[in-house]
Every structure is written in structure tokens, then in C-alpha cells.
Design a protein around this nucleic acid. Sequence first.
DNA 1: TATGGAAATGAAAATCATTTTCATTTGTGC
DNA 2: GCACAAATGAAAATGATTTTCATTTCCATA
Lengths: 121, 121
Amino acid sequence: MSRSNPRVVSVLERAGGFASAQEVYRLMQREGESIGLTTVYRSLQSLVNDKFVDVLRREDGEAIYRLCGGAHHHHLVCKGCGETVEIEGGAIEKWAKTMAQEFGFRDVGHTAEIFGLCPKC
Amino acid sequence: MSRSNPRVVSVLERAGGFASAQEVYRLMQREGESIGLTTVYRSLQSLVNDKFVDVLRREDGEAIYRLCGGAHHHHLVCKGCGETVEIEGGAIEKWAKTMAQEFGFRDVGHTAEIFGLCPKC
DNA sequence: TATGGAAATGAAAATCATTTTCATTTGTGC
DNA sequence: GCACAAATGAAAATGATTTTCATTTCCATA
């Protein structure tokens, strides 16, 4: 299993926001770093597993990554410009727990995203 | 330009929630409807343009479609066997509304899924 | 009822992100 | 130095989506 690659982390830091795997790869190439696309994908995935980065999807479906604090949170995403706000989901956590119990599900996780148009759009 | 295809709309109605283009296609095939995948994609796109359906992205990036205004519910999905239970999300609706208001978002929708292991798995 | 053009259709090819395969390289403990 | 596990990356495979392009269906009008 590939480990969280410090070179990839560094690129994400410098990118300072969201970047797709392809973008990370192109950036590293442009800077003369020798790395394979496969390794970029693997590194990003293990960073996601370790909760060092957040994944989201562009409107075209491409996955985009960003370093994140690691705390569990949800997103409010603008359909127009893609701006995202991290939000609290206390109500969701409770709801998920309740529902899981009601139907006898164990080992549960959940996703919850809100999407709409931000004030600017 | 392809027009909003009533057969595709009908499938989405019966699906009663989100369905991907591929799923719509497979469903129609299974029911003996003769239609091309290309046409499914085009119909869905024009339905989106006309705001008759909403698009979202699954976690794997696949686009999923749902009739706007249709009955709205959430899912409890088993990671083991794939069984899904439709559940109520009253708490979620409230949460989404509150959050949207707080950040000035308009025209909002949301997704929320819970996944875990069902009693049998 | 013909007929001509516009819109709709779909099969097959192209595209593009992502994943898988697999052989090679690198690193680490002994 | 040696063996073995982990990491790497090139190339092929995958899978959704889009594009191309030739054919078919509609529909208005002669």
C-alpha cells in the first residue's frame, strides 16, 4: 500500500485549494519532479483514507482534492461557481445513528451534501 | 436538439429517486423498450437544461438524475449485500434549509445516504 | 399523396479520468 | 551482500460520457 507521499502533499499545499489528480500530476511535471500518474492517484487515495485530504467532484465529475483539517464535516456547494462551505452536521450525525439503530445496521457512515446557488450566483 | 423524451421521464418517475443514465438505459432494456444509450444521454441532458430534472454525482463520479419535485427520500444502504431501505429524512430537510439560509444559498437540494452493515451481513 | 428539409435516433468510434496489471526498482532489516 | 516487502510507473483495461455520421422519422407544404 502506498504511503502518504510528501511530494504530493507539498503540491497540494502550494496549490492552496482544490486540485484534480491530473492537475497535481501536470504541476509536478512542470516543476521537473519525476513521478508517475499512477503514483499520484495512489498517494491521493491514501491521503483521503487517512483523512488528510478532502475529495469533492467538479461538475464534470472529475475528482478534486484539498488538504483538510480532518474533522468530519459536510459541504454546502454552489451549483453555479463551485464555491464550497464546510458546515456542521450535528443533526445529521444524530439522524444517521437513529436510523441505523431502527433498522439494525452496524458500522455505519454517511454522506450529506447540500447544493444550491450561492448569494453571488 | 433532442426534446424531453416522455419515455425517459416515465422511467425516472417509476424509479422514484436518483438514477444514472446507465441505469435508465438498463431499465428500459429490461422492460423491452427499444432505445439507444445515446438517446438516453441526450434526453437526460435536455431535461436538465429545461430544469425538469436535477443532476448530482455519486461518490464514484457517475451522474445521477432525478425529477424535480418528485417525492423525496433517503437511503440506508448495506455495504455487504447492497440491500437498501428507503427512509425518512425530516431532520435532514430542516438541517438543509437552516444551513442554506445561514449562508444565503437559494434553490437548494441535498443528498444524504447512510451506509453500513445490515443485520444479515 | 409526394417530397424536401429539419429534427431525432442510434451504432460505433473517440475521449478522458481512473483503475488494474505486472514487471522493475527501492528500501530495510538481518 | 541478501532476501523480501513495499513503492513505483508504463501500459493496458475499464467505464461513463461525448462525438460522429449515416439513417430514419416527422411534418409542413406543394
